[in-house]
Simulated scan of single mutants.
Amino acid sequence: MQESYYVGAYWGPRKETALECARRAELFFHMLARSDPSFAQWYRAGRGFPRELPGHPVHPEVKELEKLLLRSKLRTDVDKEVIEDMGFRQMVWNAKKEATEINLYCGKHSPWGGPNSCLLKPTREGAIRERLLRTPVLAEVLTSMATAWDPDFAMASSDEMVSLVQKRKWEVRVGWLTYLSRRLGTVPPLPAPVRIEPVGELGWLLVLSPEPMTASNPEHVAFTARVRELLDRAGLIARPEPKPTEE
C-alpha cells in the first residue's frame, strides 16, 4: 500500500498583508524550483485557461502572487464581507494528472481555528514520486519552506506515520525530516543516525534517516517515536491549543 507522504510547514497567528505574503511566496517558489525539475511551473484554477494546460500558469513574481492572494480572501457566507483576520489561501499544482499540489494558508492572525501553513503533497506518479521522496530533495523542500515562511516547525512524513507517532492533537509533528525553529528552544542530543543541520539563523533541520522512513516498518516507527519523546522532554513538542471556532 502506497503511503500518503507530504511536506508541511506550520506557524501560529501572524498578521501579514497580501504583499508581505507574496514576497515570501516568491522566495519559496524560486527556491523550490531548484529542488526538482517538476517544480519549475505551477498552475491555478480559473475560467478560460487553454485545454492543453493544467490551468492558468502562475508566474512566481510578487505582483502576480499578491493579486492571487487578494482574490483568495475568505468572506462571510451571508453578506460576503472579507474576514480580514483569516488571511489568504491559495492552491496550485504542476500537472494535468497525478500532480504535486501546494496548499498555502498565510496572513492569518485570528486566535480562532488552526495555524497558517504551507503543504506540499507529492504526485502519485511512480518515477517522479520516487525521485521526490529522497532525503536530499525533501531537505531542500523543507529548507525552502523554512527560509521563506519562517514557520514554527515543518516536517516530511506520511499520514500513516504521523497517526502512529503523534500523541496530542496540537503538537510539533516529528517526521522522517523535521525542521524546528529556534523559537521553540534548543535541540537536545539525539541518537544516531539522526543528522542535525542549521537552517541559517532560523532553526535546525533534523534528518532521522538517509533512507525513506515508512509506517510499515516497526523499527522506523519506534525510532521516530523515540526521537519525538526526546524532543518532548526538551520542551520542543507541546503546542498551545487554539481556541475553538465560534458557533
Rank of each mutant, 00 (worst) to 15 (best):
R51E: 14
K243S: 09
L208W: 06
C21N: 13
V78P: 00
Y5H: 12
P60I: 06
I102R: 08
S163G: 05
F49T: 04
P54Q: 03
H220P: 01
V221G: 04
L70I: 12
R239F: 10
K63E: 13
V141Y: 11
Y6R: 12
W11G: 04
A148V: 03
L231H: 03
P189M: 09
G55E: 12
V194Q: 10
L164F: 09
I128F: 00
G235I: 09
R14T: 09
L138K: 03
L74I: 08
G114K: 11
M1T: 12
A222G: 00
I196V: 15
L184G: 02
A127Y: 07
R24L: 00
A18I: 06
S181L: 11
N116A: 01
D232C: 00
D232G: 03
E130N: 03
G126N: 13
F39K: 04
P210S: 05
G12D: 11
D159R: 10
K243E: 14
V199D: 05
L65F: 08
L32F: 03
V194L: 04
H56M: 05
K15F: 01
W149C: 07
V137S: 00
A25K: 06
E219A: 12
R44H: 03
F223H: 07
R75P: 01
A18R: 01
F88C: 06
F153Q: 04
L236H: 08
A215Q: 02
L70M: 13
D79W: 14
P111N: 03
V78E: 14
T224P: 02
A22W: 10
D159C: 05
Y179T: 01
V172I: 08
E197N: 07
R44P: 00
P242T: 10
Y105V: 05
I196D: 05
R226I: 00
R168T: 11
R182W: 01
P198W: 08
V172G: 00
E201R: 04
R14E: 14
V82E: 04
T214V: 05
F223Q: 08
R47V: 10
P151S: 09
N116T: 01
E247M: 04
P151H: 09
A33W: 09
E241T: 15
Q90M: 14
Q41K: 07
S216R: 13
G8H: 11
A127S: 15
V227H: 06
L70E: 15
D79N: 11
W176F: 06
L202T: 05
L132M: 12
A45F: 03
Y105W: 07
I83P: 00
G12H: 07
H30W: 03
R233K: 15
T178K: 06
P54I: 03
H56W: 15
V92M: 05
C118V: 11
